[in-house]
Simulated scan of single mutants.
Amino acid sequence: MKTQALLASLALTLASTAFAAGDKHDHAHEHKPLHGGVVVEIKDIDYELVAKPTVIQLHLRDHGKPADVSKATAKVTLLSGTEKQEVELKPAGDKLEATGSFKVGAGTKAVAVVSVAGKASTVRFSIK
């Protein structure tokens, strides 16, 4: 009986250690908006959407540091009430951006499909 208890205890200890080692997410950085937008984290990348009536910007940060978006693209679908608008974002310095006339405001939903280095991610935002 003591052997079974010892083995169970050992298995639990090893499982706890393996679980802790598998958690590779580093919370040394915060997920706060740096540009006045809405932040969503997907696979260790922070996506910050800044949506204004004349400009849509998407900032990407990898573990708190700006990500290289020079070869990235994004397509954002804005859903405001019954209206739907699709916007292509292109690199503009350290962000992806589009200018024009956009229907955005509190309650607007946005879905961004972002392609960086051939890898696509889908990110959902809710504008406050």
Rank of each mutant, 00 (worst) to 15 (best):
K128W: 08
S9L: 13
P91G: 02
Y47G: 00
A117K: 06
H27I: 07
G36N: 02
L6V: 02
S70A: 14
D94L: 10
G64P: 02
A15P: 01
A21K: 11
T108W: 14
T73Y: 13
H59S: 07
T122N: 03
E48F: 08
V69S: 05
A15H: 07
Q57G: 04
T122A: 06
A92Y: 12
K52D: 09
A8C: 06
D23Q: 10
D68W: 12
L49D: 01
V113R: 10
L12K: 01
K109H: 14
Y47Q: 01
T73H: 07
A28C: 07
A15Q: 10
L12D: 00
G93C: 02
H27P: 00
D94A: 15
G22N: 07
K119V: 10
G36Y: 08
A67C: 10
H31T: 05
A110H: 08
Y47T: 00
G64Y: 07
A110W: 12
T13K: 01
E83K: 13
Q4K: 14
D46T: 13
K75W: 03
S121W: 09
A74P: 00
A120R: 07
Q4G: 14
K103T: 11
V39N: 05
K119L: 09
L96E: 00
T3R: 05
R61W: 08
G100H: 12
T122P: 00
T99M: 08
T99S: 09
F125I: 07
E86H: 12
G100L: 15
V87Q: 09
F102W: 03
L49H: 02
P33R: 04
T3L: 06
S101F: 10
G22T: 04
L79E: 13
V38W: 13
Y47L: 02
S9C: 13
A11V: 02
L7W: 03
K71R: 15
T77V: 09
V113N: 06
K119Y: 09
L79C: 11
E97L: 05
K43V: 11
A51W: 04
R124G: 07
K71A: 15
A106K: 13
D68M: 09
Q4I: 15
T108Q: 15
A120N: 06
G22R: 11
K119G: 01
G107R: 11
L6T: 02
D26P: 06
E48I: 12
Q57Y: 06
T54R: 15
E88L: 06
F102H: 05
S101G: 13
V116E: 12
D94T: 03
D68N: 10
K109L: 15
S101A: 14
L96Y: 05
A92M: 09
G81Y: 08
H63P: 01
G37I: 03
A98P: 00
R124D: 10
G105I: 11
T73Q: 08
R61V: 07
A21H: 11
V39H: 04
L12N: 01
R124T: 08
